[in-house]
Simulated scan of single mutants.
Amino acid sequence: MNYTIHQLQIFLKVVQKQSITKASEELFMTQPAVSIQLKNFQDQFDISLYEIIGRKLHITDFGKEIALIAERVIEELNTINYKTEAYKGMLTGKLKISSASTGKYVIPFFLEEFLSNNAGIDLVLDVTNKTKVVQSLKNNEIDFALVSVVPDLLDVEEELLIDNKLYLISSEPQPNEQMPLIYREEGSATRSAMEHYYGTHNSKARKRLELTSNEAVKQAVIAGLGNSIMPLIGIKNELIEKQLYILPIEDLPVTTKWRLIWLKGKRMSPVAKAYLDFIQLKKNEILEEKFKWYQEYK
């Protein structure tokens, strides 16, 4: 056998994504290039690693076993790289963060300087809904979670970052009680806040759509399909361009807090500890430089 590390990485990514197209996007390769390397890797084995049935990729049981081994091999290779850099005096390793979907408008600004100053650190950032974020934290798969509401029945510590302000958003500048409501999916913190608000204000507005991302909700509101309670942090450009309007409604905005949380008593890696120290030292400076518009918005 004469397969390469690159082929192991490609095969593992294809298995993780269950798609050559999605794997090629994440690897910044063309689809034909991934397909060629995948075939070259398969040619090293007498047993099928995958099958394509009805244009859909299926990983065989043997392929799944090889993927598990490939994952361990790549982790060990990363460890070699980290150890090499560490001996040269660099902070090295992985920083693993899972963020609630709207947190994608927040967390990059709290990472940029830290990663720029520490070239030996690899970031693994998973942006998903609150339920999956909390599950990753509960399973101790990540260093930190970025959430706007502290999860129940989970003993955590936290570092507050910034307010999360939610307003009623419309494509029209004036309130229209006939407009239906657009909700996020079950498990979303924004969905919970919206349900709580309308559950306590006897609204007669009906639910029309349920969408699985903040971006999808935003585009649906712009298209005039309905109104929604949304985080201010994600609609700055649309407000400037007058694609969206904030409606003056009683008891809004709803305000929570974006916070980094981690399991209480967790033994942090040197990278995670360094990042937390950075946040505590630089937080106010980042807020002043990157979020002044947001904090001043009334």
Score class of each variant (00 low, 15 high):
residue 156 V to D: 01
residue 186 E to F: 14
residue 175 P to F: 13
residue 158 E to H: 08
residue 182 I to P: 04
residue 194 M to A: 08
residue 182 I to S: 03
residue 191 R to A: 02
residue 173 P to C: 04
residue 156 V to M: 07
residue 151 P to G: 02
residue 192 S to Y: 14
residue 155 D to T: 08
residue 178 Q to L: 12
residue 192 S to F: 12
residue 153 L to W: 14
residue 153 L to G: 01
residue 171 S to Y: 15
residue 193 A to D: 06
residue 184 R to M: 09
residue 189 A to H: 11
residue 172 E to S: 08
residue 153 L to S: 07
residue 187 G to K: 14
residue 197 Y to G: 03
residue 168 L to E: 13
residue 160 L to Q: 14
residue 178 Q to E: 13
residue 176 N to W: 04
residue 173 P to F: 02
residue 177 E to F: 12
residue 171 S to T: 06
residue 166 L to T: 02
residue 165 K to E: 04
residue 161 L to E: 09
residue 191 R to N: 12
residue 164 N to F: 06
residue 164 N to G: 02
residue 162 I to N: 07
residue 159 E to W: 01
residue 153 L to A: 07
residue 195 E to Q: 13
residue 163 D to C: 01
residue 153 L to C: 05
residue 194 M to P: 02
residue 166 L to K: 05
residue 163 D to W: 08
residue 183 Y to V: 00
residue 158 E to S: 07
residue 154 L to N: 03
residue 175 P to M: 06
residue 186 E to N: 14
residue 151 P to F: 14
residue 176 N to D: 11
residue 174 Q to S: 10
residue 157 E to D: 12
residue 177 E to A: 04
residue 153 L to P: 00
residue 162 I to T: 05
residue 187 G to H: 11
residue 181 L to A: 00
residue 188 S to G: 09
residue 192 S to R: 09
residue 163 D to P: 12
residue 182 I to H: 10
residue 162 I to S: 08
residue 179 M to T: 03
residue 172 E to Y: 14
residue 189 A to N: 11
residue 183 Y to G: 00
residue 195 E to C: 04
residue 194 M to I: 07
residue 192 S to V: 07
residue 187 G to W: 15
residue 184 R to C: 07
residue 177 E to H: 08
residue 180 P to V: 03
residue 151 P to V: 03
residue 187 G to V: 04
residue 159 E to H: 13
residue 190 T to R: 06
residue 153 L to K: 15
residue 169 I to P: 03
residue 150 V to D: 00
residue 190 T to C: 06
residue 166 L to G: 00
residue 182 I to D: 05
residue 197 Y to H: 11
residue 178 Q to H: 13
residue 165 K to S: 08
residue 165 K to L: 10
residue 196 H to S: 12
residue 186 E to M: 09
residue 185 E to R: 08
residue 192 S to E: 14
residue 187 G to R: 07
residue 184 R to Y: 13
residue 176 N to F: 09
residue 163 D to N: 03
residue 163 D to S: 12
residue 197 Y to W: 15
residue 171 S to N: 15
residue 185 E to C: 04
residue 173 P to W: 12
residue 188 S to I: 04
residue 178 Q to F: 14
residue 176 N to I: 03
residue 172 E to L: 13
residue 163 D to M: 02
residue 183 Y to C: 01
residue 166 L to Y: 07
residue 198 Y to P: 10
residue 176 N to A: 02
residue 198 Y to E: 03
residue 173 P to A: 05
residue 183 Y to I: 02
residue 196 H to I: 06
residue 182 I to Y: 10
residue 178 Q to G: 04
residue 169 I to L: 08
residue 162 I to H: 10
residue 164 N to C: 08
residue 198 Y to L: 09
residue 180 P to M: 13
residue 164 N to A: 15
residue 191 R to T: 01
residue 194 M to W: 11
residue 166 L to H: 14
residue 156 V to L: 05
residue 188 S to H: 09
residue 159 E to A: 03
residue 178 Q to T: 10
residue 186 E to L: 12
residue 158 E to I: 01
residue 172 E to Q: 15
